[in-house]
Design a protein around this nucleic acid. Sequence first.
DNA 1: ATCGTTGCTCTTTTT
DNA 2: GAGCAACGAT
Length: 839
Amino acid sequence: MNDPQPPVLFETSPGSSREDVAPASSFLAELNPLQLEAVTHRGGHCLVLAGAGSGKTRVLTHRIAWLIAERNIDPAKICAVTFTNKSAGEMRNRVRRLLGPGKSEAWLLTFHAMGLRLLREWTEEAFSSATGASGSPLRDAGKAGGKGDAWLPPSGFTIYNHDASLAVWKQCQSALRLSTRDHDPGRMFSLCSRAVSRLEDPSSWDSANQDYDRRVAGRVWKEYRAAMRAAGAVDFDDLLVLPLHLMAQHPPLRAHTAARFQQLLIDEYQDTNRIQYRLIQTLLGNDSELMVVGDEDQCIYRWRGADLNNVLDFQNDFPGASVVRLEQNYRSTQPILSAAGSLVANNRQRLGKSLWTEREGGESPIFVQCATDREEAQWIARRISEMHTAKLSDIAILYRTHAQSRQIEEVFIGKRIPHRVVGGQRFFARREVRDVLAYLQLLVRDDDLALRRAIATPSRGIGPKTIAALGNVTAGSSAAAALRQLADGAEPERSFREAGFSPAIAERLLAFGRLLSSLRGVAAKKPVADLIGTTIERSGYTALLERGENTDDRLGNLGELASAAKEIVSDGAEIATSKTEVQRPATKHGADDVNASGDRPGKFDELRSFLDRLALLADADTDRDGVEGVRLMTLHAAKGLEFNVVFLAGMEEELFPHATSLAGGDVEEERRLCYVGMTRARQRLFLSAARSRRVNGRERWLEPSRFISEIDPRLIVVRDYLNPRAAGSKDYVPNSFSGLGGRTGKRKRSNNPAYRQQPAHDSLRASPNKTAPVKFTGSTRPAIATDLLEGSTVVHPTFGPGKITVTSGSGEKLKLTVRFRKTGTKTVIAKFAKLEVPD
DNA sequence: ATCGTTGCTCTTTTT
DNA sequence: GAGCAACGAT
Ligand SMILES: Nc1ncnc2c1ncn2[C@@H]1O[C@H](COP(=O)(O)OP(=O)(O)OP(=O)(O)O)[C@@H](O)[C@H]1O
């Protein structure tokens, strides 16, 4: 990483000199001078901007310890926001280790968990007693908005995860008679979600100047929001948006809440979105201090609304804020660091940074291209078998898409290599897991989505019509509530009949209602793990699985769910603050009564918090340290982690960078993702590609990723594995990739026209995907601000000459839309683009 | 009214 | 390979 020193964008505040602080706490000795400066920063906000492995997370951890030990800050007034629950847990442990035993009451959580916690705490009662207000100020604040942005969920509210939210969305869509063929629900939902995370309001998209997609999506979104509120449910976005709007519309609530956030620390700031930024702003009190840490090269969530401007504008947003840059990498060896640096240097949208390591020596990253995805997996397996030293859990295989894990897993199973696929949502998206969770959900609250799912598995002769009829039994009450009331009331048979159900249907409904009651009885006494077992027995779910296929796998997954329950519940007990137990008061609002359990405390709260925490589980959260086995996960899930040995599998065009990013998407983000992956490695880094790969059942023919050729060729070793006999025999430096083409003629599938159409490619460097710079003949000079006006001609180092058609923003944020003569219209950030103008 | 089967489509990353 | 709409059987 021998980048020229980047332009100084931020001056480090001279006020926070290191000498001010005597490192009385021994743990400060574990920091280098720049880290120490950041950790002990006082009196203002601070951005730590630094590359991979430079100890940003360590700075946060030590700062928390320092705030408590040296500045005597009440831990309850410290909040650190991390990207996953797992990293929050690790941070909690490290702080404990630094400070010694003693409970840390600091909030260490994710943004979503924070939103949840606030919403759970903000009951009318809690608020009234804290502020002396009377009446229902919160609820009224929500109503006063008119637009309905602010909404205080009823106390029994639940979180719908992506699947559940999408199910609601689909219902709304079909209620509006919008076919899912013409209007992809997932697309529309994510369109709205992205908009919401940019603080846009999709319900205002009905105006004529919106494009068709948005108008339609906006219509569905209004229905969706109404349906979610009627169900007493919040989605992931709500967890951020609702607290924001509630505080905005109710200043005393904001003041009351902000008082707790005297010290706010944010990890992975480069991947925060606009709402999160606003939340941070809203939560800061007058004398609060904010520290954010981030790395613009590791921003990998722009596709879901992460906004790099949060980092770029930090000093504008928080005037007087300091910036500390860390430059020493403690994680990787020089060759790995250099290779990663040379890759990400291909991005234009970056500030640039220098990063060095004392870990001289070490082996160069190795790239190998295999014939097929299966051979790729076998190659990886072989490399792992050959490593005698490494602990398996210190090895990670990272890939772009989940689908890639299958092939690797199969090979690993065959070769008996212990491994773990990390990916929580994957696990919780399994059918059997979702089915059982629907039952659990039903025990806790009257949830129609859960009712529909549970009542149909195993099938009980009750379908959509009957459930709709249940929903109409009592106006304004859910089908689940009606069922519970009818079945649990006196003379249920008569009630059902009077409600208009035929005897046969009534009998089935009653049987199901009684099943739920009996399970509620169990839920009130037994731990969640036991409850799961009882549920699948009594509901006939076990029997259903035994009749079907993959019985053992599926039962095994439910066993895992039960053991996850044990772990999560015991974790939760440790983390819980007294306020987590929100006792629900009798509510006057009928629609708010979504609680199916009555007021029985204890085990029910445990079950509720278990369900809450499941909904918020990140992929990375499902990994349990200490369990042996190679880790398999997506690159996204690997963010923030480190391993001795890292394999990046599937380094192929259209897979990585993914095809969607090539078609007008964000290739730079893919490159950052690759950078993130490479920099997870401490000692060894292997990159691999397959020449042909099964993608959705079809065999596809793929070129090696451009990222391989973008890495400085002196920093990566290319091995030929197309012929296994030659594997490892010859290392050579890739000035040309010739020789990688062998062996394909033998393949059976070579009659497939798709194969024959592929031109023989013998030089990766000549890949058409690699953009050759467009030359501008004529003399130019670097552009200055006054050159960059609409209509002026500029010259871009890669795209060549073009005319500015639109400008937006100003200063560091100045963005230009330029119609390039050769390469079409593109939007560039003036600061990054190294533009020139004709002299 | 409900349930299971068939045939079709589209394929990223996630809190 | 999963999810879904549409169909036909119960
Ligand atoms: N001053 C130090 N001395 C020794 N080791 C350090 C020091 N600072 C950080 N480390 C180690 O370097 C590694 C990377 O640190 P950390 O995870 O905090 O970096 P990071 O900047 O958050 O990384 P990334 O952005 O890549 O996730 C860790 O193993 C950490 O223990």
